[in-house]
């Protein structure tokens, strides 16, 4: 049986992890490769690296990082953040990334989804969507949720599927950072609307939240950052807890 996936997300700047991490056993708290290896050994099913570097060296440092991760880590990983062309993706996949995630660039140029799916296959194209519920309507936001658009979440989700996205990573801006649980109502609707896997993001605070997003939210995978980085939740404990609730996980 296909299992539900648990995905830690690492924010990267200039090849280093940002945001604090609370791993006493880390030799170098800013080394994404070391952190990735630890998560892989603890039972993470996949990893996401979100690059927030804004410098001109970005492409090269990110490709180098991807190469180092691929060298050490034996589980799949996705790279996102500022990817806007077929060339960007070619470089990252050739460096060893399994998937790329595109967000604002897909909204600005939806054809990019078609181009990436045709060249590399849908399986490596994750479209990340940040949305916020405004006056009862889920609206897509750009630039890490800062810039509103007039695009509706569900219409956009349907479009990205039709254009060839292999997965959708949905982050609720209403829930992100609250630690009050995922946006399960919207997630469940999304999961019925499209026939590609949905990764839930934003709101993880405790183990029950993960169980809820898999059952009520019908999510295929759940992504979180700080609850893992600060050891508030250990991945192996989380998976044991989910298994007790009859949620299929890889243990």
């Amino acid at each position: 049986m296909l299992t539900k996936r648990i995905i830690p997300c690492l924010d990267i700047k200039d090849g280093r992890t940002v945001k604090g991490v609370n791993f006493v056993d880390l030799r170098d708290a800013g080394d994404p490769v070391e952190l990735a290896e630890i998560y892989a050994n603890e039972g993470a099913d996949e990893l996401v690296f979100l690059d927030i570097t804004a410098t001109e060296q970005k492409r090269r440092t990110l490709a180098e990082l991807v190469m180092h991760v691929a060298e050490k880590v034996n589980i799949p990983f996705t790279v996102g953040g500022g990817i806007s062309s077929v060339e960007d993706v070619d470089l990252l996949l050739n460096s060893g990334a399994d998937k790329v995630s595109i967000n604002s660039s897909a909204v600005k140029n939806p054809q990019l989804i078609n181009d990436l799916a045709a060249k590399f296959g849908s399986q490596c194209v994750v479209v990340a969507i940040d949305a916020k519920k405004i006056n009862g309507e889920w609206m897509v936001h750009l630039v890490g949720g800062k810039v509103p658009t007039d695009i509706k979440l569900f219409e956009w989700a349907k479009e990205v599927e039709e254009r060839g996205a292999g997965e959708i990573l949905f982050t609720s801006m209403n829930h992100d950072g609250t630690k009050n649980g995922f946006a399960n109502e919207a997630l469940a609707y999304l999961s019925e609307l499209v026939n590609i896997p949905i990764i839930a993001s934003g709101g993880a605070g405790n183990m029950q939240h993960f169980a809820d997003t898999f059952i009520e939210g019908k999510a295929d995978a759940a992504l979180a950052a700080s609850v893992f980085h600060f050891k508030e939740i250990e991945i192996v404990d989380l998976k044991k807890e989910l298994k007790k609730k009859n949620i299929p996980v890889r243990l």
């Binding site: 049986m1 296909l2 849908s122 292999g166 997965e167």
Partner: peptide, 8 residues
């Protein structure tokens, strides 16, 4: 769902 993505 298609593609199948994940651990089976």
């Amino acid at each position: 769902k298609v593609p199948q993505i994940g651990w089976n």
